[in-house]
Amino acid sequence: MPHHVVSDLVANVLSIAVQVGDTVEVGAEIALLESMKMEIPVLTEEAGTVSEVKVEVGDVVQEGDILAIIE
């Protein structure tokens, strides 16, 4: 089943650490968000290949928004 890497909270996307096709391990940083005056890395809980990146730098994401999909 594909794993959805989602944002926990409303935030700005500061940077994206992966591209489609990248292989990632558990705990790899997918994106860096900015919220509550903090820079918060979002890590994947599953290993696999990045099949889709759903956001761009500068986007505002809402709680539950999918950042990337790992197959």
Partner: peptide, 8 residues
């Protein structure tokens, strides 16, 4: 835990 929700 700042890693989750900035620790809020």
């Amino acid at each position: 835990n700042p890693m989750r929700l900035g620790g809020c």
